[in-house]
Amino acid sequence: MSLSARITAALIVGFAHVVTAVRGVWDGIAPIPGQRIYFANHNSHGDFVLVWTVLPRALRFRARPVAGADYWLTSKLKSFIGKDVFNAVLIDRNSNTRTSDPVTQMSAALKEGDSLILFPEGTRNTGQARLLPFKSGLFHLATANPEIDIVPVWIENLNRVMPKGALVPIPLICTVTFGAPMRLAMGEGKADFLARAESALNALAPERKI
């Protein structure tokens, strides 16, 4: 990691702490080193920053976010942050134009010993529903890597810090909750596995009240 990338990473993590006072809640898994596939709800471009911020340093620099190349390669700054700072696995979300298979790309990163942070909803959820239906990538990844723990991660409140279209974040306390790890069960089909993953993630979300 270059010096400029290191400084940028420290600034981004510091900024995330000031705005969100973010706290990691380890509810079913301990923050100890280990290779994992983290999957989280997706409300904001800052989602993986928060997951990254609460991971202990030893885990942080080996946890690579999976992100859309269409967003992260559109400007020099974004590409620097995406590739150099976060070392993202950039995938082409358009299945008609892409030249490499996203699951192959993600599996290659896992083969190198890295962990992954991914957002199985596939796009930012800006509506009222808690979760959008999961895309099948998580299932294919689990099938190709059955020996790696898959950890649900609920990110709370970041959508209020920076709602869609907002230019300035407002400070609110965020939490990132890590749930119990899961794996693909013997003979489990795609629909069953994705439903189980969705409900594992949903179970981590705090209740909302007026």
Binding site: A21, N157, R160, P163, A166, I170, P171, L172, I173, I210
Partner: peptide, 11 residues
Amino acid sequence: REFLTLTNTAA
């Protein structure tokens, strides 16, 4: 930051 976290303020 703490107080706003518990409010119902919207986008």
